[in-house]
């Protein structure tokens, strides 16, 4: 029982961070219909920003979110403005290859600057825990990052639902052409959406930095995960991505124990295919033609 509870709790907490990555991707896909293969690499850039803030300026990783978020927003906006914008009307495989190419550029530039060494951020709380009882413990940094994730998601949800810009983004996601006819500056929305998506990925990078490690190729692990989460939740759905993230976190954690560590990613991919086949709109998505 203790093993089950331990797995469940750490699954949920890790899932929170996955959710943030998924939400970023889902926003980008929702607004632009571009599958961003560089999403993990954007997260990686966020991790290195956090690392720089920690080692050079001595800023705590959780506090550094305040710097990482706006910087990554600008970075994402720049990527969209200069590169992605040019292929919005292009065929899907060109969009994919473009983002793959951008990802390669990011990871290899970072490699030239920082070398390919693994970097760790060791804080005073890196391996501290809260004992819950029954032999179950909760990692303090994971818990903090989960709480921050929840807060960010709530704010984002409010932003999309209640503000003018948020509504314009949603309108663009629903029907780009109609939105344009309604006088929405679609180009600007795209830049904002890509900026936000990147900022969220960068923030996720910052949040896992204290409990994970940083290296130039770290993105690949997360890119695939982000796809699975996004599809699971329904492409374009923020709440769906949140649920999808937690679901994937828990699935990984439980199947590592009850099936095997080696097969846990297979379980995730099979789940992914099943959702694609039987509910292609995802758990929270509205069915689309």
């Amino acid at each position: 029982m203790a093993v089950f509870m331990q797995s469940l709790i750490s699954g949920i907490l890790i899932g929170g961070v996955y959710a943030l990555i998924g939400i970023g991707l889902t926003l980008i896909f929702g607004v632009m219909r571009v599958i961003n293969f560089a999403h993990g690499d954007i997260l990686m850039v966020g991790m290195y920003l956090t690392y720089l803030a920690f080692t050079v300026l001595g800023i705590d990783p959780f506090v550094s979110v305040l710097i990482t978020f706006p910087l990554m927003f600008l970075f994402g906006g720049f990527l969209q403005r200069v590169f992605i914008n040019r292929v919005l009307k292009a065929v899907a495989q060109n969009q994919i290859l473009l983002t793959i190419g951008l990802g390669l550029i990011m990871s290899n530039t970072v490699m030239l600057i920082f070398t390919s060494d693994y970097k760790l951020i060791t804080t005073s709380y890196s391996s501290s825990t809260l004992k819950v009882g029954g032999g179950v413990s909760v990692s303090t940094p994971l818990l903090i990052s989960f709480l921050i994730t929840t807060a960010i998601t709530a704010v984002l949800y409010w932003f999309l639902l209640k503000t003018d810009t948020g509504q314009a983004i949603r309108a663009t996601a629903q029907d780009r052409d109609a939105a344009q006819l309604m006088g929405i500056n679609v180009k600007r929305m795209s830049i904002i959406a890509f900026g936000l998506g990147s900022a969220l990925a960068g923030t996720a990078g910052a949040l896992i930095s204290p409990t994970y490690y940083i290296f130039p190729q770290v993105g690949a692990v997360f890119t695939l995960k982000a796809f699975v989460i996004t599809v699971l939740g329904g492409m374009g759905s923020v709440v769906g991505a949140m649920l999808g993230g937690i679901l994937i976190g828990v699935t990984e954690s439980l199947s590592a124990v009850y099936i095997s560590s080696g097969w846990k990613d297979v379980v995730v991919f099979v789940l992914f295919l099943l959702v694609l086949l039987f509910k292609p709109s995802g758990l929270m998505g509205k069915s689309r033609t």
């Binding site: 203790a2 093993v3 331990q6 797995s7 750490s10 699954g11 890790i14 961070v17 990692s139 896992i208 409990t211 994970y212 976190g249 990984e252 954690s253 439980l254 590592a256 124990v257 560590s261």
Partner: peptide, 8 residues
């Protein structure tokens, strides 16, 4: 990212 369940 997470080996806790396995270690438990």
């Amino acid at each position: 990212a997470d080996y806790r369940s396995t270690l438990a």
